[in-house]
Design a protein around this nucleic acid. Structure first.
Lengths: 195, 195
DNA sequence: GTCTATAATAGGATAGAC
DNA sequence: GTCTATCCTATTATAGAC
């Protein structure tokens, strides 16, 4: 607490991103100052520039890290089998990945407009890749004859919005436990695309 | 264009709110300055304070107006009949009300965290009233035995998230016309709560 | 690697002339 | 009702000492 000088690059670096994530999720990118982030980390504002060239890069790093982690985890989930199994797997994956990451979800969905064009495009490309994973499952189900979806693209957007919305209102320790909520959402998803 | 002086209270007042809505929807509350809003209206920053006591009131007025308009329109929609008809009516109402108001939807969903506590509570109360209208329909359908919803509250949040998500990606003149999209969403909603 | 100090700019809000 | 001018505060980012 009393130490004011010293080198902590391996500690401070991640702490800057953590503090930025927490503060931006709570107050929004434009509303959070570099001084606030520095105070949260326990350094002076100037020290932040050892870890990020500017505020924009901080936001972009947060969002890129979230999307890379998401796509990596999806690849590892290795959803195989018939379309219904894959849809159930995707639904569970989406909920289990996003629910413990409410700050990341908040930032990734709210702060897109604060990315400069180049960074925006990079994030959108990754997001599109994730959406396509779900759409491919819906297409497969159509081909198998187990899903009846008038338009797979619209259904994809609708289902992702429904699932992601969960992150906006779910609070740990609430009325319903996580497995129960997961079951309820799977029930809604399954029926919505059923024949 | 050349006139720099004069009284236009009845013109300028609404124009301030319109400009604020457009700019805040695009860039976010914290990122938009009073000077930007004034420039959009075509006055100097100081003149704005004839129409709003401060920036916070501007945001609150935008969100309150949106919610009041929503609840009034819902009351006029007068959804009656059996639960399935009411659900279809609600779905159509939600889409038709929100789709032409993408700026309002954006602001109302993104800027809640920038409201001071008192204003936040006021908006949340109105939002809850709207959600309850849908939940009542789902309850009625359960009672009639035409819906099978494990938890009406969770289903309410899920369906509203799905429907509102439409406002985030729909663009006029896109691949699908509005009535088509409306039909697709109704199909998803109807099946998701079906027995 | 972090500090202090500061440059350069922009912010919300107000006062007083017209 | 609007303007100009200004107060006061806060901002991002940089420079140089330690």
């Amino acid at each position: 607490m009393a130490r004011k000088q010293g080198s902590h690059s391996e500690i401070t670096g991640p702490r800057v991103l953590e503090a930025a994530l927490r503060l931006i999720a709570r107050h929004g990118y434009a509303a959070v100052s570099m001084r606030q982030i520095a105070a949260e980390v326990g350094v002076q504002a100037g020290a932040l520039y050892n870890y990020t060239p500017d505020k924009q890069s901080l936001l972009f790093d947060l969002m890129r890290h979230h999307m890379v982690e998401l796509l990596d985890a999806l690849a590892e989930a290795d959803l195989t089998g018939d379309a219904l199994s894959r849809l159930k797997g995707f639904t569970q994956f989406h909920i289990r990945f996003h629910l413990p990451r409410s700050d990341q979800v908040f930032v990734s969905y709210m702060e897109l407009r604060n990315l400069v064009p180049q960074n925006f495009t990079a994030i959108e490309t990754m997001r599109r890749e994730y959406e396509d994973a779900l759409e491919n499952i819906l297409r497969a189900g159509e081909a198998e004859g187990v899903f009846a979806v008038p338009d797979t693209r619209v259904a994809t957007m609708a289902l992702i919005a429904m699932l992601t919305g969960l992150s906006h209102w779910y609070r740990e320790g609430g009325r319903l436990a996580m497995p129960v909520i997961e079951q309820i959402y799977w029930d809604l998803v399954r029926k919505s695309v059923a024949v």
